[in-house]
């Protein structure tokens, strides 16, 4: 197979573009896609400080690498989720990535913030692990961005993540989530802007980029996400894509093109409350993150009193 651009030996074929690329032309293609996403959604500009949420996986490490190459001012933020060997490996690889490239990295631990790891939080609060993880990340990313004077939080969500999420949201007509499914969410009150610069690139393209750039990432899947619905939706989307290449991007980009038609922009007021516990903006008196934290704390006290009685 030959590269569509230079006719050199191809290392990746992209049926959705009916194209194959050699390492060098693939790099140009990928950087161009990221640039297009940043530009189209006016995600950020060179004078801003960007907090990159880095998990240690291929997407977030590749995103950090790309934004650094594009000359943006970035700070990495890694949250140690306390999921045994998986988290140890994730933290280790993230630290090594930052150290090798001399990039600033801030690491926090979920256990220190909430008093328990993701699996314990899920047990104590009767939430699916991915939900407990998601709520905690959103809260702590926002807090870290404000603390470190960053104007924007960037995450490594890719086209597969977004298309599968869209499928799930449509299947259950989650209007609230559909309305907010945008690769660039503006800042709102004290919630900083959130962006997804990899939304034009597939999971395979990101894995290929990480491999070709020698990025050492965590290949193992999060043990907590084994039965996650999102993986099932990804499988369905990939089956459709195999039969009809290009469907995934047509589905997702088509939604973004029509989103404002279905969900017109509203002058939304920011959350009216400030959380009683952490002073973050919240739609209720106590924000979801603090409710989780309090439940974990109460459960811990109950266990202690049970042990001592």
């Amino acid at each position: 197979m030959k590269c569509r651009v230079c006719r050199g030996k191809a290392v990746i074929d992209l049926p959705r573009h009916n194209a194959s690329f050699c390492p060098s032309c693939f790099d140009s293609y990928l950087m161009d896609q990221v640039w297009k996403a940043i530009d189209e959604f006016r995600m950020f500009h060179k004078s801003e400080r960007i907090l990159i949420a880095v998990s240690g996986g291929k997407d977030s490490l590749a995103l950090w690498d790309i934004l650094n190459r594009l000359g943006y001012r970035t700070i990495g933020f890694h949250l140690d989720l306390g999921i045994g060997d998986y988290s140890r490996e994730s933290t280790e690889k993230t630290r090594k990535f930052a150290l090798d490239r001399d990039l600033p990295l801030h690491v926090e631990s979920l256990a220190q913030e909430v008093g328990a790891s993701v699996d314990s939080i899920a047990d104590l609060t009767n939430r699916p692990p991915c939900s407990a993880c998601g709520v905690s990340k959103r809260h702590l990313f926002n807090r870290a961005a404000k603390t470190m004077d960053c104007q924007v939080v960037a995450t490594g969500h890719n086209l597969d993540d977004e298309a599968s999420r869209l499928l799930g949201n449509i299947l259950h007509w989650q209007d609230g989530y559909l309305e907010k499914q945008n690769p660039a969410l503006p800042d709102e009150g004290s919630l900083v802007r959130k962006v997804k610069p990899l939304n034009r690139l597939t999971e395979k393209e990101m894995a290929a980029y990480a491999f070709l750039k020698g990025i050492d990432y965590v290949v193992h899947e999060c043990p907590m996400s084994v039965n996650a619905k999102q993986l099932f939706y990804k499988k369905i989307m990939n089956e459709i894509e195999q039969e009809s290449p290009g469907t995934k991007q047509a589905f997702y980009f088509g939604f973004l093109d029509r989103r404002s038609h279905f969900y017109p922009e509203k002058d939304e007021s920011p959350p009216s409350f400030l959380c009683r516990e952490c002073q973050s903006p919240s739609y209720t008196e106590i924000c979801t993150f603090c409710r989780i934290r309090l439940k974990v704390s109460l459960a811990g006290r109950d266990q202690d009193s049970g042990t001592h009685s």
Partner: peptide, 23 residues
């Protein structure tokens, strides 16, 4: 790539690319 020849003498690595969970 898909059409490439494999060498029987060398191990081939299959690296799954799918990750998932919270979004």
């Amino acid at each position: 790539t898909q059409d490439e020849d494999l060498s029987a003498e060398m191990e081939v690595e299959i690296r799954p690319v799918i990750s998932g969970g919270a979004s």
